[in-house]
Every structure is written in C-alpha cells, then in structure tokens.
Design a protein around this nucleic acid. Structure first.
Lengths: 193, 193
DNA sequence: AGCCGTTTTTGACAAATGTCAAAAATTACC
DNA sequence: GGTAATTTTTGACATTTGTCAAAAACGGCT
C-alpha cells in the first residue's frame, strides 16, 4: 500500500483517458518516495530531474532573495506536483529548493520515464500539457490575487483555500508566503477573532 | 507587408524546426489583425477563441476586483501572445479583458486553426507546449519577484525589463500593475532622479 | 512534572504607503 | 495657438506595515 502508484495514474487517466496497456506500462515503472520533515525534494544548484505527485504531506518552494533572506513561493500539498519545471525542462540548475514541512510521500516519475511515456503511452503528452497549463495558470491566479489584496485578506483567502496549511505550517513560513512580517501576521490573526 | 504572417511562423520555427510544408500550411491560414488604441482584443464574459502574436504595440490584461476597481495583471508587447489561456482552453467566458494601450497589430490563429495545425503540422503541438510553459513560468517569476520587492524596486525592475512600457503607458496604468497608489508612484519616480 | 529550545505574541516606535483634494503640467483637438 | 480635457504632481494627514527586543506560550523530551 505504501508504494502504491495508482493515485498518480488515476489522476492522469481522469485528465485524458488512457488504455489499460498505457496504465500498466506506467505502473511498472513509477515508484514512491518518502521525505522526512525538513528534508529536501531538491536543492538550489542541483538539476531537478523528476516529478513527484504528492500523496501525503506539505512541501514549500523556497527562493533565496539577493539579501539572503528566504521567501516561500508557494506550498505543495496532496494532489499537486513537486517539481521545478524550469529546471526539469531546461536541464539547468534549480534556483529554488523544496522542503518537506511535514513527512511527505510522493509518486515519482523521472525525466527518463517521462521521455519513454511520451512515445509509448497514448494520451500522455496531452495530459502533461493540460496539467502543466492548469497548474501554472492556478499559480498565476493566486499570485495576482495576492497582489491586489491587503494582508488580512490574503491570510483569509489562504485559510479558505487551504485550511490544512494553517494547521500544519509554522507562522513564520506562512508570513513569508504572504509577504508579511511575522509580527504583523500575528496581529492580523488576533484581529480575526 | 502589413498582413505578413511570417514573424509568427519564424517564431514557432525557432522553437521547434518545422517542415516547409508545415510552414506553408500555416501561412495560408493565419491572418493579421489591427487594434486601435483603446480597443479590446476580447472582453469579460466573452470566450477567447484566438491567439494573437503581437508584432506591434502594447496591450494590458485587466482584471476587475470585487470592489469594481481595475487591476492591470500584466502587459503584452511585441513578441508575446495576446490570449486568455484559461478561456481559450476551457471554452468558458473570460474573466479579464485585454485593452490596446497603443495601436496594435497581431498575427491571429483561431482555435479552429490550432486544432487543424495540431494534426497537420509536425512539431506544432510540441512548440505550443514549450511556448505555453515558457510564457507561464515567466509570468510566475515576475509576479513572485514583485512580491518580495518594495515599490521602488518593482518600478526599477519594470524599467529595466521593459523600458518601452514606461514611455508608452500612462502612469496610472503602471501604478495599477505595480500594486502601488498612483501618487506614491509619482513620488517614487521623483526620488529616482 | 519540569526543563530547554523554539515559536508566537506583544509593546513601542519608525518607515512606507494610502487617501483625498487641489495645483501644475501635459496632451488633444478645434 | 488657445482652450478643454486628461494626466501627473504635490501637500497634509491617516493608516498600514515593518523593526527590534523582550515576554509569553508552546512543544518535545527525559
């Protein structure tokens, strides 16, 4: 059960229906990976050569600012992908890292697998296109919203959209994601009671 | 010359090399479109059913906030695409509109054309995937950066990245893009002299 | 239960940005 | 070339958010 890769296959299948053969082909190659709290899915400077479909846990994508401070670009939780698309596609070193905020489990597809799937699994390419577009559009939407909203609204929207994050992630990380000072976020939270 | 569609074809060809036949196939179908200053590429509530490759001019993508105020999500200038990908892919009504800030010219590919190209032009699908990913990643990158920077830095980066925008676009629009009050932006600009 | 390290809250104050309205500058148009 | 309309700048002030440091609360561990 712990190395069950079907959730990922089911997910792809729900986007673009696949043949039994295609699914079996993928099933025999995919594998699962566990990360302990605080471990990295990949690091700055290394090339991201795999995509993880997260089935348990939360990760955060972290970018380093020029002044050395860290910024949480976004969170990844169940049903979403752990990958640095930029590095994955280009083969260039990653400019970000991903840290498991809780113990995580993901179904892993390496770059080599993906290349094989593209030619051997009908519908795979199309599913990837659709999912990539969908994921990136969602991120743009969220970032755009955050831009027009003030800090309390940003916090409330995160709470609505992703209540489990608030429970599982320390305040200092959330504040970095919301672009608000930690003390300010603490006060905002106080207001909302 | 004014209805020359080759810039778009050359652009695709530079991403994924195409056959002579493929290029001729597209060339005979694509057409150009001109927009006067203030005209819309598409409107809120309508479905976006075409992609425009902008060869001249600047457009802005505008989102309406709940309070009725407008927010400039981003600018589109020469060499970039005028499209609401969300509406284009889903067929659902658009939640944004695009306004020509200057007279614009673009090479247009309709959704119907795109569907035909997918099956008749080798490499087309792959080029589209690559370009989509590239464009969306760029937008995420810009938005993320804007999030960690303060207002003067945001202005300076826009100036670096896109000096022509500053010349061609009124201050009030830029301020909406930068997420800064217009008066504040005016003062920032004063500082930087 | 009690200790230690970490996280969160709080206070006092500083800095940045927003708001509103009027003046100045610029642009468009007859 | 002059006038109206639009855009930008400026002033005075309010509000929001940041900073820093200390206190309080929390969590893990033995």
């Amino acid at each position: 059960m712990s190395d069950n890769v079907t959730p990922f296959i089911d997910f792809l299948d729900s986007v673009v229906p696949m043949t039994k053969e295609g699914k079996a082909f993928m099933k025999s190659r995919l594998f699962t990976l566990s990360l302990g709290k605080g471990e990295y899915a990949y690091e700055i400077g290394s090339v991201c050569h795999r995509i993880g479909f997260v089935t348990d846990g939360v990760l955060r994508v972290v970018q380093l600012n020029e002044d050395g401070s860290e910024y949480t670009k976004y969170f990844i939780n169940e049903g979403h992908f752990s990958v640095d698309l930029e590095s994955f596609s280009s083969g260039l070193p990653s400019q970000e890292y991903q840290e498991a905020l809780t113990p995580c489990r993901m179904i892993v597809m390496t770059k080599e697998m993906a290349e094989v799937f593209h030619t051997h699994v009908e519908g795979f390419s199309r599913a990837v296109s659709i999912l990539t577009e969908r994921a990136l559009l969602e991120k743009i939407k969220i970032k755009s919203e955050m831009f027009t909203d003030d800090a309390p609204t940003r916090y409330e929207k995160l709470l609505e959209r992703n209540p489990s994050i608030i429970q599982r992630v320390p305040l200092q990380v959330i504040s970095s994601y919301l672009g608000v000072n930690q003390a300010t976020l603490s006060r905002i939270r106080k207001q909302l009671r």
